[in-house]
Amino acid sequence: MLAALIADDLDAALQLGLLDAQPCPGCDGGCNARLIEARDARLVALAARERHRARDARLQRRKAERQAARAPAATIASAAPALPSAAADALARALAKARERTSR
């Protein structure tokens, strides 16, 4: 495992059990320190990744809840009766006049 760490091959070190590694009684202090440091750094990174994923899931859930809360209001508004034809004509004329004034 230490050879993989020295070669900067974290994938191999992880496959060899880096996350569960314990200090080796037969190794010197520098070897054990490097092993424990690498293990702890990976555990911190994995915890950070898990927090990030949980945050993303929470934000997606909140977004879905907000959209669901807005959906009934949108369906009620779209179910409102249309304007009578005389009112719709008057509105169309007013909008045309307003566009004409702004285009000048």
Results as ranks from 00 to 15, higher is better:
residue 28 D to F: 04
residue 78 S to Q: 13
residue 16 L to P: 00
residue 20 D to W: 10
residue 51 R to H: 14
residue 64 A to H: 08
residue 46 L to F: 13
residue 99 R to L: 15
residue 103 S to P: 02
residue 86 A to E: 14
residue 86 A to R: 07
residue 83 L to M: 02
residue 95 L to G: 11
residue 13 A to C: 02
residue 72 P to A: 10
residue 16 L to D: 02
residue 102 T to S: 15
residue 18 L to C: 04
residue 100 E to T: 03
residue 66 R to I: 00
residue 79 A to L: 11
residue 59 L to G: 01
residue 80 A to K: 10
residue 35 L to V: 08
residue 93 R to S: 06
residue 56 D to F: 09
residue 67 Q to W: 11
residue 44 V to N: 10
residue 37 E to M: 04
residue 52 H to P: 00
residue 36 I to D: 14
residue 24 C to T: 08
residue 96 A to G: 03
residue 23 P to T: 10
residue 36 I to P: 00
residue 19 L to N: 10
residue 5 L to I: 07
residue 24 C to G: 04
residue 7 A to Y: 04
residue 96 A to Q: 12
residue 31 C to M: 11
residue 47 A to I: 03
residue 85 S to Q: 08
residue 57 A to D: 08
residue 43 L to G: 05
residue 10 L to C: 04
residue 29 G to H: 10
residue 38 A to R: 02
residue 44 V to I: 05
residue 98 A to K: 12
residue 77 A to I: 10
residue 65 E to F: 08
residue 13 A to M: 01
residue 8 D to R: 13
residue 80 A to W: 08
residue 100 E to A: 14
residue 74 A to V: 12
residue 22 Q to N: 13
residue 21 A to F: 07
residue 46 L to T: 03
residue 90 A to S: 04
residue 44 V to R: 12
residue 31 C to R: 02
residue 92 A to T: 06
residue 56 D to L: 13
residue 75 T to L: 14
residue 32 N to P: 01
residue 97 K to L: 09
residue 73 A to Q: 10
residue 3 A to T: 06
residue 65 E to Y: 07
residue 69 A to I: 06
residue 30 G to H: 08
residue 97 K to T: 04
residue 63 K to N: 11
